[in-house]
Design a protein around this nucleic acid. Structure first.
Length: 194
DNA sequence: CGACCGATCGTCT
DNA sequence: GACGATCGGTCGA
């Protein structure tokens, strides 16, 4: 069943990063449903977090989505090439977000392969999963409780020892905050180099 | 294997 | 004018 508003507004990025693991990310496409199970996430925890776009309470046209309602998609272009997909959580004016770093493809795999012919690494990173699913800047600001892009609970329960934590990727500029264990990954998912 | 590097452009200063 | 919450190819060991 589709996650409702309360799921997103009633928790912070840290707990949401855990609870979004094992959930199904779904898009409606012209071909039907395209989806994958979240296998890796990262928490970006508000204005105190040096790795976050919202660090120091910074507010720009780009990151303003992060200050909005939990249950909103935050999609932005990284390195001029890749769209990264984030789930905004927590309350208005508290800029918490969860970056989805990897998925396990479930529905619409044929469609994903057409978009990414070299399927070996098709959903192994935050930039490639958006390409596989067809997520782009049109989804920035999308309401995750509506019917274009959403997340479903498919009954996957993860035990504590099935979740691996570690430091976030690509945030060296964040100083001490780069070391925080804000990265979460399903232990049994395809191994990804640290 | 691992290290390195070019691609590519919206966003912010 | 500089810089990314990255990726995939290449090069050398």
């Amino acid at each position: 069943m589709k996650l409702t508003r309360g799921f997103y507004t009633d928790q912070n990025a840290l707990s949401a990063s855990r609870s979004l693991l094992g959930k199904l990310l779904v898009l409606r496409s012209s071909m039907g449903r395209v989806s994958g199970i979240n296998t890796e996430t990262e928490a970006y925890c508000g204005m105190e977090d040096r790795a976050s776009h919202a660090f120091g309470g910074k507010r720009t046209p780009r990151n303003s989505i992060m200050y909005g309602k939990g249950g909103t998609a935050y999609v932005y272009l990284c390195y001029g090439i890749h769209h990264l997909f984030n789930v905004v959580v927590h309350h208005v004016d508290v800029p918490h977000a969860v970056l989805v770093r990897a998925i396990q493809p479930m529905e619409g795999i044929q469609e994903m392969l057409e978009r990414r012919p070299n399927a070996r690494t098709s959903t192994g990173g935050p930039g490639t999963l958006t390409q596989a699913l067809g997520i782009g800047s049109v989804h920035n600001g999308a309401d995750l409780t509506a019917d274009r892009i959403w997340i479903e609970d498919i009954g996957v329960k993860l035990k504590r020892n099935e979740v691996i934590t570690g430091p976030r990727i690509g945030v060296e500029y964040a100083g001490v905050d780069a070391l925080l264990p804000y990265r979460f990954r399903i232990a049994t998912s395809r191994a990804i180099p640290t």
